[in-house]
C-alpha cells in the first residue's frame, strides 16, 4: 500500500512536471532570461504548485499522523547557515548552466533522451562527490595531530 501510494504520488508529480514545461530546459532558461527571450510560464508552475501544496498541507498536517505511517517525517533543521545558502547558490549556478533541476530531470528520464541521461548521470556524480567532500571534511575535523 505504501509503495502504491508512493508510485501514484510520483506519477502525478511526473505528469505535472511534463505538462508544466519544467522538464524543458529551453522554457526554464527563458524564464530566467528576463532581458532576452523571457517566458514567464515558470511563475505559473511555481504559483500553482505552491497554492495547491499550501492549501493541501494545511489539511494534511492537521492530522496527528499520515494515513500509512505512524508519524510525519518533517525536516527538523531550521538553521539558515553558510552550508544551506552556499549549497543553494551553487545549485542555482548549475541550474542556470544546464536548465535542468533534479525535479525536472528525473521525470524527463521517461522520455529516454540522451541529454537527460547525461544530466542525471552528472547529477548523481555530483551528489557522490559532495558526500565525499563532507566525509573528508568530517574526518579532517576529527583528526588530532600526534606530537
Amino acid at each position: 500500500m505504501r509503495l502504491i501510494a508512493s508510485y501514484f504520488a510520483g506519477l502525478l508529480f511526473g505528469i505535472g512536471i511534463s505538462i508544466s514545461g519544467m522538464a524543458n530546459p529551453a522554457k526554464v532558461l527563458n524564464f530566467f532570461d528576463v532581458t532576452g527571450h523571457w517566458d514567464p510560464s515558470l511563475a505559473f508552475v511555481m504559483g500553482g504548485a505552491l497554492l495547491a501544496a499550501f492549501v493541501g498541507y494545511r489539511y494534511a498536517l492537521r492530522r496527528t499522523a499520515p494515513v500509512l505511517e505512524p508519524s510525519f517525517h518533517l525536516p527538523g533543521n531550521s538553521a539558515i547557515d553558510a552550508r544551506l545558502l552556499g549549497g543553494s547558490a551553487i545549485f542555482g549556478i548549475g541550474w542556470g548552466i544546464a536548465g535542468f533541476c533534479p525535479g525536472g530531470a528525473l521525470p524527463a528520464l521517461g522520455t529516454g533522451r540522451i541529454e537527460v541521461l547525461a544530466f542525471v548521470a552528472a547529477l548523481v556524480t555530483g551528489i557522490f562527490a559532495a558526500r565525499g567532500m563532507i566525509a573528508w571534511n568530517a574526518r579532517r575535523a576529527d583528526y588530532v595531530p600526534q606530537k
Binding site: 508529480f13 500553482g48 499520515p66 518533517l74
Partner: peptide, 23 residues
C-alpha cells in the same frame, strides 16, 4: 498548461505528505 502542471505537482506533494508524511 503551466498552472495546471504546477497544481498537479502541488497535489502530488500533498498526497505524499498525507499518505506517508514525507516531503
Amino acid at each position: 498548461q503551466s498552472l495546471a502542471g504546477g497544481s498537479l505537482i502541488g497535489l502530488a506533494s500533498v498526497l505524499l505528505m498525507l499518505m506517508l508524511g514525507r516531503i
